[in-house]
Amino acid sequence: MNRKAKSLITASASHLIIIIFGILMLYPVIWLIISSLKQGNVIFSNPSLIPQSISFEHYIKGWSGVGRIHFSVFFINSTLVCLAVVACNIVSCSMAAYAFARLKFKLKSLWFAVMMVSIMLPTHVTTIPRYVLFHNFGWVDTYLPLVIPKLLATDAFFVFLLVQFIRGIPMDLDESATLDGCGRAGIFFRIIVPLSGPALVTTSLFSFLWTWDDFFNQLLYINTPIKYTITLGLRMFMDSSGQSSWGPMLAMSVLSMGPCFILFFTLQKYFVQGIATTGIKG
């Protein structure tokens, strides 16, 4: 009895600490969401989390855009780029992963080591020559520099993630498929791809989120406001509108985080899986 009471107390204490600390930690995000629903501007130095009245004025004003561009344009642009990146990453990374995990070919271990090192490479060593290259192709101010590298599996990180996963698929399946007359491509399409579902979801998820939040590359390559993505749109908001329109800007910030929230809460287990197997940065 005594022991039971004691463990009950420790558990309650743990709950209490976790909850209090959690609220403290999430305070900025909660404050952001609530403030974006408040009226006027003065309230932005008000730390209170309880709104006197709810108003969507900031959302309406923000959504109508900045510099004569409707905010929905940025949303559509970002979504298109992200979906293209997801598709490219899935195709190219799963192909490379299949080669590394299942096929036998010359210099395989060398290439694998090279790929692993390339994950740790700071991107800035390649930034300038890549820019020159894409500039010469006439690709600056298009989405191609954001998408084409993904078609060539430059996010080696996901190759590694998929290799780890494919190695866990039983070899017997490949062998019986071979007996049934499947070639290497057949094994890839009929066994490896269907069974890699979870790892492919993780890959898609992180591809989407990282591209959604990416700032550096979009800043570098996209110059025309009508082609701006969400991150650039938000930044334009900040630059063009002094202190007076913090409200619409914060409202649009909240909207920009919407897709992240939705993906996170619907696909939670894939997050943990992705992070725990490969130690995704962040």
Binding site: A96, F105, M115, R130, V132, L152, A153, T154
Partner: peptide, 25 residues
């Protein structure tokens, strides 16, 4: 042949967008 076929996107990407730019930079 199969190995390099499946590896091709990554290998091209590595040579054209990582190795070559590194030397260039």
């Amino acid at each position: 042949a199969a190995g390099y076929l499946f590896l091709a996107p990554w290998l091209i990407g590595f040579c054209a967008l990582t190795l070559y730019p590194m030397i260039q930079s």
